[in-house]
Design a protein around this nucleic acid. Structure first.
Length: 278
DNA sequence: AAGAAGGTCAACCGCACCCTC
DNA sequence: GGAGGGTGCGGTTGACCTTCT
């Protein structure tokens, strides 16, 4: 079935909103709320479709909208969040109070994308050179994870031996490696992985944050978060299903992807990690 | 001064997801 | 289980503005 376009109905106005229409919409929502967008324009006496009303309200008329130019801090936040979340504008907007997904999307396409492109073309950025070379498999724990004291990966079933999984990440230890070896010949059968980090560097994150970041379908990092817990000293999560060990931490055999994974995690702490200083 | 080119941003479109019946 | 409605999301458009030539 193909649904008819919502504005196909004759007589519905399109295009820029007038001041009068804005006032009608604001007054109506202040009085009655916006329980049903589809019914709202008729009830309010607007010749607009519900979608148009919702967009106008959420993007411009809401009282908590912050107008004006983006600050440098906001722009940096967008860049970092975009690196983590991709084009998930609504998720990015959720972390920028007063800004809308549409506004952020526009800023990205008109300013930030170009800035990033220009920045990445600059040779002195170490992260880029690492990503591009993809040969440095000797990244040290202190370089990628400055404050981490212990990183433990436990896996119940895996399709690689723990030695294989950790061999390219010098910071990973696998205390249960003996137990895991029993399934080392079982291809693509990993059911669950627990990843536990110890350290005092997750001060501002909650469960929702990790769900958003780690369940990103486009990241190829992890999928289907099963459990997340965060406290002052420790962060842990588990997820499944996974077909290969590589997906656990963004290609254990690929240093550049590991960099991306850790970069994503540490840029989320509120104290944005500048990899150029590593 | 005028036209072209590029930039900006509000708004629309279509798809996907969720919920209800 | 699936049809249909409501809503949210991301991509795209196009009108307007600014800068360039």
């Amino acid at each position: 079935m193909v649904r008819a376009p919502c504005c196909e109905k004759m007589g519905l106005k399109k295009g820029p909103w007038t001041l009068e229409e804005d006032h009608i919409l604001i007054n109506f929502i202040q009085l009655y709320g916006h329980g049903n967008w589809r019914a709202l324009p008729k009830q309010a006496g607007l010749l607009r479709c519900g979608k148009s009303c919702r967009l106008r309200w959420t993007n411009y008329l809401r009282p908590d909208i912050k107008r004006g130019n983006f600050s440098g801090e906001e722009e940096e936040t967008i860049i970092k969040l975009h690196e983590m979340l991709g084009n998930r504008w609504s998720a990015i907007a959720a972390r920028l109070p007063g800004r809308t997904d549409n506004e952020i999307k526009n800023v990205w396409h008109t300013h930030l994308k170009k800035r990033i492109k220009h920045k990445h073309a600059t040779p002195e950025i170490k992260r880029n050179s690492i990503d591009e070379s993809n040969h440095n498999h000797q990244i040290k724990k202190e370089q990628v994870i400055p404050n981490i004291s212990t990183l433990v990966i436990r896996s119940e079933i895996m399709d690689h031996t723990p030695q294989e999984c950790s061999s390219d990440i010098s910071s990973v230890t696998t205390p249960d490696s003996n137990n895991n070896n029993k399934n080392s010949n079982n291809v693509a059968c990993m059911e669950e992985v627990d990843l536990e980090l110890e350290g005092n560097f997750f001060p501002e994150m909650d469960e929702n944050f990790w769900s958003d970041v780690l369940s990103d379908e486009n990241s190829n990092t992890v999928s289907d978060i099963k459990a997340v817990s965060v406290d002052d000293q420790q962060f842990s999560f588990s997820f499944s299903p996974l077909t290969t060990m590589e997906q656990v931490h963004g290609c254990s055999s690929d240093v550049s992807d590991n960099m991306d994974f850790w970069f994503n995690i540490f840029t989320a702490t509120g104290e944005l990690l500048d990899l150029t200083d590593l």
